[in-house]
Simulated assay, not measured.
Amino acid sequence: MKSDNLKIPEYSKLVEVTYAALKSLGGSGKNNEINDKAVEILHLSDDVCSIPHLNSSSLSEINYRLAWARTLLKNYGAIENSSRSVWTITVDFSNVNTVNGEYIERNCKKANLVAALQDNSEEAQMEEAGIEIPEEVRPWRTKLHKVLIEMNAYAFERLTQRLLRECGFDDVRVTKKSGDGGIDGTGKLKINGIFSFNIAFQCKRYQGTVGAPEIRDFRGSLTTDIEKGVFITTGSFSKQAIEEASNPGKQQIDLIDGEEFITKLAEFGIGVKEIKDYEIDEEYFKKI
């Protein structure tokens, strides 16, 4: 593990690569697009990309560090994000081609952020210290991931059933019989109220990485009347699994990993409630 971790770039390098990735994507991009482009630029191996981050639910170590790299760039004023996790290079940096990661680390608005990252502080401690936490690694997500992992298998299938209904699926049914060949449920997806597709889904509570063999096994379980397969996991998907799912010569499989699953639960308010709070500017009251 230690030798693998040495292959993962430090935050200063990832800050530079994240900015380069956004430039390459046309100045804006979603989390997964930025992560994929950064990995491509760095030529990281699949083994390195699969190293899990111990304290952050289903995130890999590289995606965890890239999440913080975006936060460092945001604190520096180089990028900004919308509520839909779309990151954009700010107007002030529109003509800036490259950034200096070490300089940004040294001049970060939240100086204690870098120290906390170097000390491997837990996110809850950072939050208490008033540090802005990336959405992907906020403590409530880690806690929810633990709850999902500990759920009864059939309860998790029913939760998935509810989520798919909220996403627009109809006639969603959980398969109760054993030996169903990997299919945990079926449903219909209607597009624009006209076109409908028969779908089958498999939902697995994994803490690790789903590989290509699991995708192939699921695809092999699909009957001829199934037009779309959806593989849902609380873990993550390996690069090979993603490539296998989108193989142009085979039936396409849509993938929902743990981070997206948790995001959807929050979006539809399923077992999750948003709590609004206020940050106190103590310096303001001292100087008024």
Rank of each mutant, 00 (worst) to 15 (best):
I104W: 04
T234R: 05
Q161M: 14
A78L: 01
E259N: 15
P9I: 00
A38G: 08
Y11Q: 11
G168Y: 07
E227F: 00
T142Y: 10
L59P: 06
D119C: 11
D36E: 13
N120Q: 15
I194V: 11
K286N: 14
T71F: 07
L189S: 00
L44V: 04
I199C: 01
K110M: 11
F169L: 15
I280K: 11
A116S: 12
M126L: 12
I275F: 09
C167Q: 08
G182V: 04
R162S: 11
P52F: 01
N152D: 13
K204N: 09
K287C: 09
W87C: 03
P213A: 09
S12Q: 12
E157I: 05
T186R: 11
G193S: 09
Y154V: 10
A129C: 04
N81V: 10
K264G: 07
F261I: 02
T142I: 08
I253A: 04
K146Y: 13
Y284W: 13
I288Q: 14
T224D: 15
T175N: 12
D184Y: 06
I62D: 03
L25S: 03
K74E: 12
E10I: 14
S82E: 13
L255F: 03
V174H: 00
G229F: 01
K190I: 14
Q251D: 07
I79G: 00
A245W: 03
E282C: 10
Y103R: 12
I194N: 13
I256F: 01
A69I: 06
T71W: 02
W87R: 05
S60C: 05
G185R: 00
D47A: 07
E227I: 05
